[in-house]
Amino acid sequence: MIRLQTEDLHSGTLRDLAPDLTPMLDILFILLVFFLLTAGAVFQSLDLKLPSSVADEVNLVNAPRHIMLEIRRGSYAVDGEAIRGFEGLKFALRTALTDKPDHELIVAGDKRIAIEELLKVLTYLQSQGIEAANILMQKEIQE
């Protein structure tokens, strides 16, 4: 606490007995800064449309949003339907992409197929304007 020194120790005035207000002013200044910083905070909100019934939304969530192209040994499959030959694959892919234009394409290949088969399919996809496709790979387990 800061005290005023007078020449005479016995001549104490009312001013010498007043409390030191410096700590209180420090606390008030800190509170003022705190309130100024928190008052200027901008909160963002997001409008949500809640479903009218749970059953309708569950069906939409479970619906697949992709086309699965499997490169099997000696054949192909589009969404689980087996296809023989590369020409049949071209027709099935054109049909699937026309029916589901907003779905993404996932390519899954058997690890025993030749890399040429995968490259042939990827080249065909690129020629059809499909620039991005997800390729499924299985992580090898180190023994």
Rank of each mutant, 00 (worst) to 15 (best):
R84L: 10
E70L: 11
A96D: 09
L37H: 06
V61H: 09
M137Q: 14
L25Q: 15
D8S: 07
P23H: 13
Q138F: 08
E143H: 13
F86G: 01
L31R: 02
Q5E: 12
L31D: 04
M1Q: 14
L28N: 01
L119C: 01
L37Y: 06
A92L: 08
N62G: 12
E70M: 07
L14H: 00
L17A: 04
P51V: 05
I2S: 14
K49T: 13
M137L: 15
Y76C: 02
L125P: 11
L28I: 01
Q44D: 11
L119K: 13
K49V: 13
L37N: 08
L118H: 07
R72P: 03
L122Y: 04
G40M: 05
L89M: 05
N134G: 11
V78C: 05
A77C: 11
L105Y: 04
S127I: 08
I83R: 01
I115D: 15
D99K: 15
E116M: 09
G109Q: 05
T22Y: 08
R73G: 04
I141L: 14
I115K: 12
L21F: 11
H66G: 02
T6Q: 15
T13A: 06
E143I: 12
M137N: 08
L97W: 00
A41Q: 07
L122W: 04
V61C: 05
R65Y: 02
R65H: 06
E81S: 14
L119F: 08
L31M: 10
D79A: 13
I113Q: 00
A96Q: 15
F43E: 07
E7K: 05
G74V: 00
S45W: 02
G40S: 09
L119G: 06
L50Y: 08
I27F: 13
L4K: 12
D8E: 07
E87N: 04
A63S: 11
H66C: 05
